[in-house]
Design a protein around this nucleic acid. Structure first.
Lengths: 117, 117
DNA sequence: TTGACATTCAACTGTTTGATTGAATAAGAT
DNA sequence: ATCTTATTCAATCAAACAGTTGAATGTCAA
Protein backbone atom coordinates (compact mmCIF):
# COMPACT_ATOMS: atom_id res chain seq x y z
CA UNK A 1 0.00 0.00 0.00
CA UNK A 2 1.43 3.33 -0.94
CA UNK A 3 1.30 5.61 2.01
CA UNK A 4 -0.81 8.58 1.08
CA UNK A 5 -0.09 12.03 2.39
CA UNK A 6 -2.72 13.49 4.66
CA UNK A 7 -4.99 15.89 2.86
CA UNK A 8 -3.78 18.97 4.65
CA UNK A 9 -0.24 18.04 5.37
CA UNK A 10 1.01 21.06 3.45
CA UNK A 11 -0.97 23.26 5.85
CA UNK A 12 0.81 21.70 8.80
CA UNK A 13 4.21 22.24 7.20
CA UNK A 14 3.23 25.76 6.26
CA UNK A 15 2.26 26.46 9.86
CA UNK A 16 5.68 25.21 10.97
CA UNK A 17 7.38 27.26 8.27
CA UNK A 18 7.80 30.39 10.33
CA UNK A 19 10.45 30.97 13.00
CA UNK A 20 8.00 32.36 15.55
CA UNK A 21 5.55 29.50 15.17
CA UNK A 22 8.33 26.93 15.18
CA UNK A 23 9.60 28.41 18.44
CA UNK A 24 6.09 28.33 19.90
CA UNK A 25 5.80 24.64 19.09
CA UNK A 26 9.24 23.95 20.51
CA UNK A 27 8.40 25.85 23.66
CA UNK A 28 5.16 23.96 24.14
CA UNK A 29 6.86 20.62 23.64
CA UNK A 30 9.53 21.41 26.21
CA UNK A 31 7.27 22.94 28.83
CA UNK A 32 6.60 20.82 31.87
CA UNK A 33 2.89 21.48 31.93
CA UNK A 34 2.39 20.95 28.22
CA UNK A 35 0.58 24.21 27.76
CA UNK A 36 1.22 27.91 27.86
CA UNK A 37 -0.72 31.16 28.01
CA UNK A 38 -0.71 33.54 25.08
CA UNK A 39 0.89 36.19 27.24
CA UNK A 40 3.77 33.93 28.25
CA UNK A 41 4.42 32.91 24.67
CA UNK A 42 4.28 36.52 23.52
CA UNK A 43 6.99 37.40 26.05
CA UNK A 44 9.40 35.21 24.10
CA UNK A 45 9.31 37.35 20.97
CA UNK A 46 10.00 40.97 20.12
CA UNK A 47 6.62 41.37 18.46
CA UNK A 48 3.24 42.46 19.73
CA UNK A 49 0.90 40.24 21.68
CA UNK A 50 -1.62 40.50 18.88
CA UNK A 51 0.88 39.22 16.35
CA UNK A 52 1.58 36.19 18.55
CA UNK A 53 -2.15 35.65 18.96
CA UNK A 54 -2.42 35.54 15.18
CA UNK A 55 0.40 33.01 14.93
CA UNK A 56 -1.44 30.83 17.41
CA UNK A 57 -4.54 31.06 15.24
CA UNK A 58 -2.51 29.87 12.25
CA UNK A 59 -1.19 26.92 14.24
CA UNK A 60 -4.68 26.13 15.45
CA UNK A 61 -6.18 26.28 11.96
CA UNK A 62 -3.52 23.79 10.85
CA UNK A 63 -4.43 21.52 13.78
CA UNK A 64 -0.98 21.83 15.33
CA UNK A 65 -2.20 23.32 18.59
CA UNK A 66 -5.50 23.63 20.39
CA UNK A 67 -6.69 26.28 22.75
CA UNK A 68 -8.70 25.64 25.87
CA UNK A 69 -10.33 27.99 28.31
CA UNK A 70 -9.36 28.62 31.90
CA UNK A 71 -11.04 31.73 33.19
CA UNK A 72 -9.66 34.64 31.27
CA UNK A 73 -6.76 32.53 30.02
CA UNK A 74 -6.69 30.52 26.83
CA UNK A 75 -4.06 27.83 27.38
CA UNK A 76 -2.39 26.65 24.20
CA UNK A 77 -1.26 23.05 23.88
CA UNK A 78 0.15 20.83 21.14
CA UNK A 79 -1.98 18.35 19.24
CA UNK A 80 0.17 15.28 19.06
CA UNK A 81 -1.55 13.68 16.09
CA UNK A 82 -0.66 16.56 13.79
CA UNK A 83 3.00 16.31 14.77
CA UNK A 84 2.89 12.55 14.30
CA UNK A 85 1.28 12.86 10.89
CA UNK A 86 3.99 15.20 9.66
CA UNK A 87 6.68 13.08 11.28
CA UNK A 88 5.33 9.89 9.71
CA UNK A 89 5.27 11.43 6.26
CA UNK A 90 8.90 12.51 6.55
CA UNK A 91 9.86 9.09 7.89
CA UNK A 92 8.25 7.52 4.85
CA UNK A 93 10.31 9.75 2.58
CA UNK A 94 13.47 8.79 4.46
CA UNK A 95 12.64 5.12 4.19
CA UNK A 96 12.04 5.36 0.47
CA UNK A 97 15.34 7.12 -0.03
CA UNK A 98 17.14 4.46 1.99
CA UNK A 99 15.40 1.69 0.09
CA UNK A 100 16.62 3.15 -3.17
CA UNK A 101 20.17 3.40 -1.90
CA UNK A 102 19.94 -0.22 -0.81
CA UNK A 103 18.78 -1.26 -4.28
CA UNK A 104 21.61 0.72 -5.82
CA UNK A 105 24.12 -1.04 -3.59
CA UNK A 106 22.66 -4.35 -4.68
CA UNK A 107 22.97 -3.49 -8.35
CA UNK A 108 26.54 -2.38 -7.86
CA UNK A 109 27.36 -5.59 -6.01
CA UNK A 110 25.93 -7.64 -8.90
CA UNK A 111 27.96 -5.71 -11.41
CA UNK A 112 31.06 -6.35 -9.40
CA UNK A 113 30.29 -10.05 -9.22
CA UNK A 114 29.77 -10.05 -12.96
CA UNK A 115 33.23 -8.66 -13.63
CA UNK A 116 34.74 -11.50 -11.59
CA UNK A 117 33.01 -14.31 -13.49
CA UNK B 1 27.40 29.26 -8.10
CA UNK B 2 27.73 26.46 -5.57
CA UNK B 3 24.54 26.38 -3.59
CA UNK B 4 24.52 25.49 0.10
CA UNK B 5 23.13 28.60 1.76
CA UNK B 6 22.14 29.06 5.39
CA UNK B 7 19.22 26.68 5.60
CA UNK B 8 17.11 26.79 8.66
CA UNK B 9 14.48 24.40 9.77
CA UNK B 10 11.64 26.87 9.33
CA UNK B 11 12.79 27.38 5.74
CA UNK B 12 12.60 23.64 5.12
CA UNK B 13 9.10 23.45 6.59
CA UNK B 14 8.09 26.50 4.64
CA UNK B 15 9.32 24.88 1.44
CA UNK B 16 7.21 21.81 2.22
CA UNK B 17 4.25 24.02 3.06
CA UNK B 18 2.81 24.12 -0.41
CA UNK B 19 0.80 21.38 -2.12
CA UNK B 20 2.77 21.54 -5.36
CA UNK B 21 6.14 21.37 -3.64
CA UNK B 22 4.98 18.62 -1.30
CA UNK B 23 3.86 16.61 -4.32
CA UNK B 24 7.20 17.20 -6.02
CA UNK B 25 9.03 15.84 -3.00
CA UNK B 26 6.70 12.87 -2.77
CA UNK B 27 7.16 12.16 -6.46
CA UNK B 28 10.93 12.29 -6.19
CA UNK B 29 10.94 10.00 -3.18
CA UNK B 30 8.80 7.39 -4.94
CA UNK B 31 10.54 7.52 -8.31
CA UNK B 32 12.72 4.55 -9.13
CA UNK B 33 15.59 6.62 -10.42
CA UNK B 34 15.53 9.12 -7.58
CA UNK B 35 15.44 12.11 -9.86
CA UNK B 36 13.16 13.78 -12.34
CA UNK B 37 13.30 16.39 -15.07
CA UNK B 38 11.59 19.73 -14.64
CA UNK B 39 9.39 18.96 -17.62
CA UNK B 40 8.19 15.66 -16.17
CA UNK B 41 7.40 17.25 -12.83
CA UNK B 42 5.58 20.11 -14.52
CA UNK B 43 3.35 17.60 -16.32
CA UNK B 44 1.92 16.60 -12.94
CA UNK B 45 0.35 19.98 -12.25
CA UNK B 46 -2.10 22.28 -13.99
CA UNK B 47 0.26 25.23 -13.81
CA UNK B 48 2.89 26.55 -16.13
CA UNK B 49 6.35 25.05 -16.49
CA UNK B 50 7.83 28.29 -15.25
CA UNK B 51 5.79 28.14 -12.07
CA UNK B 52 7.07 24.62 -11.40
CA UNK B 53 10.61 25.78 -12.11
CA UNK B 54 10.14 28.44 -9.45
CA UNK B 55 8.85 25.89 -6.97
CA UNK B 56 11.96 23.83 -7.59
CA UNK B 57 14.05 26.89 -6.89
CA UNK B 58 12.28 27.35 -3.58
CA UNK B 59 12.95 23.73 -2.66
CA UNK B 60 16.57 24.11 -3.71
CA UNK B 61 17.05 27.31 -1.69
CA UNK B 62 15.75 25.43 1.35
CA UNK B 63 18.19 22.58 0.66
CA UNK B 64 15.42 20.07 0.10
CA UNK B 65 16.41 19.22 -3.45
CA UNK B 66 19.45 19.71 -5.63
CA UNK B 67 19.66 20.11 -9.34
CA UNK B 68 22.33 18.55 -11.54
CA UNK B 69 23.09 18.93 -15.21
CA UNK B 70 22.68 16.34 -17.92
CA UNK B 71 22.89 17.97 -21.31
CA UNK B 72 19.96 20.30 -21.62
CA UNK B 73 18.20 18.60 -18.71
CA UNK B 74 18.46 19.65 -15.09
CA UNK B 75 17.62 16.55 -13.08
CA UNK B 76 16.10 17.29 -9.67
CA UNK B 77 16.78 14.98 -6.75
CA UNK B 78 16.09 14.98 -3.03
CA UNK B 79 18.70 15.93 -0.46
CA UNK B 80 18.29 13.33 2.24
CA UNK B 81 19.93 15.30 5.01
CA UNK B 82 17.32 18.06 4.84
CA UNK B 83 14.51 15.54 5.12
CA UNK B 84 16.29 13.85 8.00
CA UNK B 85 16.82 17.14 9.81
CA UNK B 86 13.13 17.98 9.67
CA UNK B 87 12.18 14.44 10.56
CA UNK B 88 14.52 14.40 13.54
CA UNK B 89 13.09 17.64 14.89
CA UNK B 90 9.55 16.32 14.70
CA UNK B 91 10.64 13.06 16.30
CA UNK B 92 12.11 15.05 19.17
CA UNK B 93 8.79 16.84 19.63
CA UNK B 94 6.94 13.54 19.62
CA UNK B 95 9.32 12.06 22.17
CA UNK B 96 8.89 15.03 24.47
CA UNK B 97 5.12 14.78 24.27
CA UNK B 98 5.27 11.08 25.03
CA UNK B 99 7.62 11.66 27.93
CA UNK B 100 5.17 14.13 29.43
CA UNK B 101 2.28 11.72 29.04
CA UNK B 102 4.36 9.10 30.77
CA UNK B 103 5.05 11.45 33.67
CA UNK B 104 1.37 12.32 33.86
CA UNK B 105 0.49 8.64 34.03
CA UNK B 106 2.95 8.28 36.84
CA UNK B 107 1.45 11.18 38.75
CA UNK B 108 -2.05 9.81 38.27
CA UNK B 109 -0.92 6.40 39.47
CA UNK B 110 0.50 7.99 42.61
CA UNK B 111 -2.71 9.89 43.24
CA UNK B 112 -4.66 6.69 42.85
CA UNK B 113 -2.37 4.96 45.31
CA UNK B 114 -2.91 7.83 47.71
CA UNK B 115 -6.70 7.47 47.62
CA UNK B 116 -6.36 3.84 48.57
CA UNK B 117 -4.25 4.47 51.65
C1' DT C 1 -19.48 48.49 40.23
C1' DT C 2 -15.11 49.74 38.96
C1' DG C 3 -10.76 48.66 37.38
C1' DA C 4 -7.08 45.68 35.83
C1' DC C 5 -5.86 41.76 33.11
C1' DA C 6 -5.93 38.29 29.12
C1' DT C 7 -7.13 37.89 24.79
C1' DT C 8 -9.28 38.79 20.46
C1' DC C 9 -11.22 41.66 16.66
C1' DA C 10 -10.78 45.23 13.10
C1' DA C 11 -8.57 48.17 10.03
C1' DC C 12 -4.48 49.33 7.83
C1' DT C 13 0.28 48.83 5.67
C1' DG C 14 4.38 47.10 3.52
C1' DT C 15 6.35 42.73 1.88
C1' DT C 16 6.24 38.17 0.07
C1' DT C 17 4.35 34.75 -2.75
C1' DG C 18 2.29 32.05 -6.53
C1' DA C 19 0.94 32.62 -10.80
C1' DT C 20 1.08 34.50 -15.60
C1' DT C 21 3.19 35.68 -20.32
C1' DG C 22 7.00 36.70 -23.27
C1' DA C 23 11.87 36.72 -24.19
C1' DA C 24 16.43 34.59 -23.50
C1' DT C 25 19.88 30.89 -23.05
C1' DA C 26 21.71 26.46 -23.94
C1' DA C 27 22.18 22.01 -26.01
C1' DG C 28 20.71 18.08 -28.99
C1' DA C 29 18.71 16.85 -33.64
C1' DT C 30 18.30 17.62 -38.66
C1' DA D 1 23.36 26.64 -39.71
C1' DT D 2 18.77 25.99 -38.34
C1' DC D 3 15.13 24.02 -35.73
C1' DT D 4 13.38 22.08 -31.69
C1' DT D 5 13.53 20.99 -26.89
C1' DA D 6 14.62 22.01 -21.94
C1' DT D 7 14.89 25.33 -18.86
C1' DT D 8 15.45 29.81 -16.87
C1' DC D 9 15.00 34.99 -16.58
C1' DA D 10 12.21 39.20 -16.34
C1' DA D 11 8.29 41.97 -15.70
C1' DT D 12 3.91 42.07 -13.87
C1' DC D 13 -0.23 41.31 -10.92
C1' DA D 14 -3.47 39.84 -7.39
C1' DA D 15 -3.77 37.48 -3.18
C1' DA D 16 -1.93 36.16 1.11
C1' DC D 17 1.01 37.26 5.00
C1' DA D 18 3.31 39.35 9.10
C1' DG D 19 3.30 43.13 11.42
C1' DT D 20 1.24 47.43 13.56
C1' DT D 21 -2.17 50.32 16.55
C1' DG D 22 -6.61 51.01 18.62
C1' DA D 23 -11.02 49.35 20.17
C1' DA D 24 -13.80 45.55 22.04
C1' DT D 25 -14.82 41.42 24.82
C1' DG D 26 -14.80 38.66 28.71
C1' DT D 27 -13.26 37.49 33.41
C1' DC D 28 -11.22 38.06 37.96
C1' DA D 29 -10.61 40.95 42.13
C1' DA D 30 -11.43 45.06 45.13
Amino acid sequence: MPIVAARHLDTVFSALGDPVRLAIVENLSTSTSGHAMVNDLAALFPISLQAVSKHIKVLEAAGVVSQGRDGRHRPVSLVQSSISTASDWLDDRTRQLEARYARLDHVLANIHEGTRS
